[in-house]
Amino acid sequence: MRGQDIPMPNQTALLPNTVRFRTLLQRSETTRGFALLSPTLLIMTVGILIPIGILVAMSFWTQVGFDFDTTLTTKNYQLAMDRPIYGALLRRSLWMSGMATIATVILSYPMAYFVAFHIHRNKMMWIVLITLPFWTSYLLRVFAWKVVLGYQGVINSALMALGLIDAPLEFLLYSQSAVVITLAHAWAAFAILPMYVSLEKIDKSLLEAATDLGDGPVARFLRITLPLSLPGVISACLLIFIPTTGDYITPTLLGGPDGAMIGNLIQKQFGAVNNWPMGATLSIILILSIGAISLSFMAFANFVRKRIS
């Protein structure tokens, strides 16, 4: 027991029974812990739990003019199933963030590996350098890609100035690939951290053992490093896939009609279309789809991990 958890003397006087005293002591530690956590829990309850509850409730309401009909109905969900555009946008969002996730994880893995195994001094400096852009404005980073990929943007105008092309390449901006590139770039830092942590944890003597037993670099990587870093790879996948699926800034600025995602549709329901209950329904469908995919992915990944190790 820690000294700081000893109750005030007057409390001790009230409790002569030693057993009850001990349970109170333990309970008081828990109570103190929860007391310290309570402001955070309160704000998270008010800011997340209650709003999500109302979001769920609203998804069963209907919009009537500028007001809501609060009779519960599954009409919105039926509508979302019936109209092909909703399903198509959802599938496209999942597909695009899936692509961005795979691209980010594959491209970031060597970087995480490099920092974990080949940087011995100033490791922290490298981590800071890699994660620095992640902390700065998402909007501005997306905006920067608009400048790079634009019709008269950096790439097109540079290629034209060099005389390599005569007319701007139109597929650069307002396409799905523009969105995927931007998402992958914006979330790279998020992908590197978990992979770096699990690579860093690998016991180097395992690698020596593998070498001593005759494994070459490739076999050593495939049999030791990769399987042991899989937990990091799995969290990286989830950490990118989940937030990017609901993104709407990138598709708005760079997607064009072909690159619109479900986030754009949700945002429109709360803006121009002004059908909040439908927006709520689409949000719930989005959460459920992300949840289902993430859970099956985790189950699959764990199955693979068990098989190979």
């Binding site: 937030p243 993104d247 986030g263 709520a280 949000s283």
Partner: peptide
């Protein structure tokens, strides 16, 4: 402190790091 249910509680607190911002945005708006 050793708190019962600490894991899930911390997970709950860290949710905004992962859940798409649009979800919390519209939920709070409502």
């Amino acid at each position: 402190y050793r708190l019962p249910g600490k894991g899930p509680l911390v997970g709950f607190i860290m949710l905004p790091l992962v859940v798409p911002g649009i979800i919390f945005g519209v939920a709070l708006l409502i």
